[in-house]
Amino acid sequence: MVNRQDPLRIDVPFMRRRVKQTPASSTAAVADTGQSQRVQTVTGHQQPQGLHLRAPSSSASPHALQPATVPSRSAPVSGLSLARNSPASSASSPSPELDAVHQGAKVEKNQAALLFPAPKIRDTYELNLNEQVLRLTALESAVGTLVVSGSTAVAWESVRHVVGAADVLGNTAGTPIMTAGNRALVGYEKQTALIPLRHIRELRRAIFINRGNSPMGVQIFNGASVAIPPPANGVQFVLLAHRIANLLELRAEPVPIAWTDQQIWQEFDFTMTHQAPVSNYRR
């Protein structure tokens, strides 16, 4: 399906639309032929052959190209929607920044709408094989600190794909990420792993590994908490904190107890990144 209503698609980040410039003279020349005259009455310009993603001309007849019902900006979205909701919104927006906010928020809302239902943190006491996942609200995902006790190692990945790791003994690997508050985006404070949620939008995901005999515990600002059982019966649970749109999802992922941290990184596709040395040569 091609959405011919909207000039710009931002909801498909891996696609880029290339607009072919049509010389004005060619349009005028085509308009002289009888065949294209019929087309022009509908679109105002020549229709190119095959698939095209060009925005409709401003001179186009609005009724000819409008669907029967145009979704309003605030209309509820059900199911998968790849279309911008309101072509008119960009025209009425006072600034490109605001328009970008509206579009970005709609993309986030669509992403959140596609998520399957998951318990909230107050709905469950423990994440285990039977109840593997919970999801925080937008507010819970953003206020205070996510405190993880009982973990022995952590690895993180930022939205810029900067990857690093640390353990409770102070060993580090990869690249640390500092926030504007001069705190690590993910790291240890004594025996406790912390994520300052003020900067949650910089985080893509983090995993917490537990080599001890005690369960891991997760606590958030409002005091709600959940436990992850310790290794047992050849299985250890890795806690995966994964941000989807503006929601933080917590998962207990079972892995073999014999796996090393490096094997767990590999399983979760964490490849440590390293800061490139900076040279002043030719600057």
């Binding site: 605030s74 605001l98 906010v101 509206h102 970005g104 928020a105 003020r198 503006n246």
Partner: peptide, 18 residues
């Protein structure tokens, strides 16, 4: 009906955080 850095738009789209 809240708007802040992790909820950029209110449900009615009247408020937007920039």
């Amino acid at each position: 009906h809240l708007v802040f850095f992790n909820q950029l738009l209110s449900s009615d789209a009247a408020l937007a955080f920039v």
